[in-house]
Nucleic acid binder design. Structure first.
Lengths: 301, 301
DNA sequence: TGGATGCATAAAGAGAACTTATCCATGAAG
DNA sequence: CTTCATGGATAAGTTCTCTTTATGCATCCA
């Protein structure tokens, strides 16, 4: 059976408006429908309840006893319903739930979120980090920042940055190693996670043949930021994304010995969110903000 | 714009059921619809609110924060709505509003309503008398008892009784007049409301030619029961409906001198109510009761 | 008396809501 | 480790609610 037959909700809403206005026509105006439709719905409700709700007098209508009894409760119930929905709609604007990779979160987001807060003071941000590719259908999340190819089905994706990489090490290590003048010199040092395929790519681009990476110790730390910490501590050379370590480079905690920067064509950083939520205000707000930030950052603002 | 677009009431109801059951399928069962329809409605609501309400996990679903916030209020609001409607539906059973002609009300209904109460103790009866033909659209009324032809548009009508009439007078008047042996003898007495067309009809049927009614004093008392009172008081002969004065005849307050009873073919008593309310329980109950009473009365139970 | 107001009714069209059929993923069971 | 059962998503098609337009009727007002 049709839902509306069992319990005529729409008719009740129309009834409520009519009771409030004391007029079919005015209620129709409020609800954006014709007087005819209002008449139809009221009749429907009256038939469902089995009791006339209005007395049709010449130039005005009046509630019957039954209508008089029904109206206030219905008004209250609808008010409650409206308030509940409005609350959720409103509250959903208040919190933005971001899932991000740990590296991006710590190296990029953490230090820039302040500017988002400044622009959108009413929106609280919860930043959750995980390496797994979250599923929007199963996890509570508004947007995700992921690395990958940006072709996830059902998601709208914006490329945030390409993942560049180049060797970095601490200035102290440069000094103690007697100077790094040629890419080949790096091989004299410990490579933090020599198993990282980025090394092979970079050495090849640098024209260093046969760096013998396979024989070196591998110590996958799991996250780029850990490798960076190790490099800053002078424990070796790490291959890092310069975008993430601009501050450390500027502060002299790290140096980038060669301008050669490689790019992983298959793995970029993406902003992603469900296609059908592209117009949710808080998502729109964040998208605009982060894309602007990315451009400013690239041009050095 | 469609009403359901502005504020998806049906979707909210579906959401409420799903939240309660924690399952699309079970909610569908409760609402008498398929799982598919439930899925559709939930998606609709989610799109309207701009926020997912459920997390679709493999074998079960869970409310999101937003859903968690929404559910209890929605449940409460719908409970209120249901209760309000149930109350009106119920209360409408409690009171039966009858409009009746004064004569029928006082001479027939008043002394028989007790038996209706006995059979339907939960239904209170309000008996309102008026001579005007009430309009169900303008007056609060469940049923009406009218005299007429029973062909009112929009109303279902049941013939209650034909309107018979025959002269009646008090036994004292019979005695003081020296006996009433022939219809012509009535003309020796005062005719209460000689202008009543019933007299002409009756005398004609009785074979009394030219009773010269026009020359007699006319005193329309307005209601048959007043004429009856006058007759009982010995003030003359009234032409009355015997059905209404069975008690008075039995008690000897009135006598019916001749068995000749005429019938007004154009004016019967009818039970009438709006066609579309024929299945309202209290109306059904009253209809059944009064029709039975009529039959019993006719056969003398 | 003629015009304005307010609701009812009829007919027809739009589109929402529901169903059937099918698919996919997960968890449980043999 | 298949196979089955469960629970939901999706696609396509259909039904029928709801709405609108057009019209009528009654009342009130000038």
């Amino acid at each position: 059976m049709k839902l509306s037959k069992q319990f005529p909700l729409n008719a009740l809403r129309v009834f409520e408006a009519v009771a409030r206005h004391g007029s079919f026509t005015k209620a129709g105006d409020e609800l954006g429908m014709t007087q005819t439709a209002v008449s139809y719905q009221v009749k429907l409700l009256e038939e469902n309840i089995g009791e006339p709700l209005f007395l049709r007098r010449p130039r005005h209508i009046a509630l019957t006893d039954a209508g008089e009894r029904l109206a206030p409760k219905v008004t209250e119930a609808f008010a409650m319903l409206h308030e509940a929905v409005a609350t959720v709609r409103g509250a959903s604007e208040e919190t933005l739930l971001i899932h991000s990779t740990p590296t991006f979160a710590s190296q990029w987001m953490a230090r820039r979120l302040g500017s988002f807060h400044l622009r959108h003071p009413a929106t609280a941000v919860r930043l959750i980090t995980s390496d797994t590719l979250i599923d929007f259908a199963r996890e509570s999340a508004d947007i995700a920042i992921r690395s990958g190819k940006g072709n996830w089905p059902g998601l709208t994706c914006h490329r945030l940055m390409t993942i560049d990489f180049t060797p970095m090490l601490s200035p102290q290590l440069v000094a103690s190693s007697g100077g790094i003048n040629h890419p080949r010199d790096l091989l004299k040092l410990r490579l933090i996670d020599a198993g990282d395929p980025w090394w092979a790519t970079w050495f090849e681009a640098a024209g260093v043949a046969d760096p013998d990476l396979a024989g070196r110790p591998r110590s996958r730390l799991g996250a780029q930021s850990f490798e960076a910490s190790a490099a800053i501590a002078g424990q070796g050379v790490a291959i890092l994304t310069p975008e993430f370590y601009r501050d450390d480079l500027a502060a002299g905690r790290l140096v980038q010995p060669f301008p050669l920067v490689c790019r992983d064509d298959d793995w970029d950083y993406w902003l992603a969110y469900p296609e059908n939520r592209r117009n949710v205000p808080k998502i729109k707000a964040f998208r605009n903000w982060i894309l602007e930030e990315m451009n400013d950052g690239g041009t050095g603002a």
